[in-house]
């Protein structure tokens, strides 16, 4: 009986997922395509829960659906004057035989590899190593243990990738123009939501040691609060001063690196935590990473250098930002 229920749930989830993916790839109207994509991300979060990956479900809902969706909608807004945006008279895309065949071939190869992997899988693999060392990792959430302890090196490099992407974005020009001041309903909602988001973010950071959560989810929620503030018409989303903001952006990578180097100085390996200290060190790194990820995601959403980024006296920046607000009052979606 329960098998039938699960089977039905699987079927519904997959059909809806495929329909939304199809819609986001084929919808003639780009705005509708983006909305389909956001729905696709939210449904994917349910699939992660179904496949017992709650950590990923949290990250998917906050980043995959929420922040990416907001980013795509913001990009649509500044594309609204250009010709390639609007409803296309013909199909959204034409089937091109060579790339289609190549993608199909790649899919078949992946499928064969996957079937083979399922056959030879002794059901344990690296999971056993993770679970048998979990007690020495300083945390009891296995995903956090992998991210911040067993494979900490990968996570350090990943934070560096995030920083590099942001530096690229900052080098490409000014931030998108600010939004007009929101009406009383949205402004009131944002006023209520911002402290709540900060609180939940701190909770996720803390709980990540032994339950689903952690630096990525916490940072994404914090960035979500920043995006909301921006959408409600605060040009700089209450960013701190330029120096502090720059410090926040590099906080994750630099503290992570510092911990690794100090551990080398005291005679252990790079990022090889002493078991007694592991829990504390992981929390320390995760706190810095949360701030860094939040600032990075938020700045990435702006799509360029905001006024608050500039190190020279903030007066010129502020005036520019105020100008931009005035320019765009008629443009708020």
């Amino acid at each position: 009986m329960t098998d039938v229920v699960w089977g039905l749930l699987d079927l519904l989830l997959i059909l809806a997922l495929l329909a939304l993916a199809w819609g986001s790839l084929n919808s003639r109207n780009l705005q509708r395509a983006v909305i389909y994509f956001i729905g696709f991300g939210l449904l994917l979060a349910l699939v992660w829960v179904r496949l017992r990956a709650p950590d990923i479900a949290l990250a998917e809902a906050a980043i995959g659906a929420g922040l990416t969706g907001a980013l795509l909608l913001a990009a649509l807004r500044d594309a609204s004057h250009s010709p390639d945006h609007t409803d296309r008279p013909d199909r959204a895309w034409r089937l091109n035989p060579v790339p289609t065949l190549l993608s199909l071939g790649l899919a078949v190869a992946l499928g064969l590899a996957y079937l083979q992997a399922l056959e030879i899988a002794d059901p344990q693999r690296l999971a056993v190593a993770v679970f048998s060392h979990l007690e020495q990792s300083g945390v009891s959430n296995p995903v956090t243990a992998v991210l911040l302890n067993f494979r900490a090196y990968d996570t350090l490099l990943e934070l560096a990738v995030l920083l590099t992407a942001l530096l690229g974005i900052m080098a490409l020009g000014q931030a998108r123009p600010a939004y007009a001041q929101a009406g009383p309903v949205l402004a009131g909602l944002v006023q209520w939501l911002t402290p709540l988001l900060i609180l939940v973010s701190a909770y996720l950071l803390w709980i990540g040691a032994h339950a689903p959560g952690g630096a990525f989810q916490a940072g994404a929620l914090l960035a979500g609060a920043g995006v909301l503030l921006r959408l409600a018409g605060f040009p700089d989303s209450h960013f701190p001063a330029a120096l502090i903001l720059r410090g926040m952006v590099i906080a994750g990578v630099s503290l992570f690196l510092a911990v690794g180097l100090v551990l080398m100085l005291v005679g252990r390996g790079f990022l090889d935590y002493p078991p007694a200290w592991a829990g504390g060190l992981i929390l320390l790194i995760e706190t810095a990473a949360t701030l860094g990820i939040a600032a990075t995601l938020m700045l990435a959403f702006l799509g360029g250098r905001p006024a608050a980024w500039s190190l020279d006296t903030s007066t010129t920046g502020r005036i520019q930002a105020a100008d931009m607000v005035r320019h765009n009052t008629g443009d708020n979606p």
Binding site: D55, I56, L72, R125, V143, D154, T155, L297, G303, G304
Partner: peptide
């Protein structure tokens, strides 16, 4: 479930977002 692919996908989601943001900045 095996936590290793979970950790991979978690970092993947964040990297995918930053790559998307960079690509959109390039488009702009």
């Amino acid at each position: 479930p095996d936590p290793l692919p979970h950790a991979l996908v978690l970092t993947g989601i964040v990297v995918a977002f930053s790559a998307t943001a960079l690509a959109l900045a390039l488009v702009k």
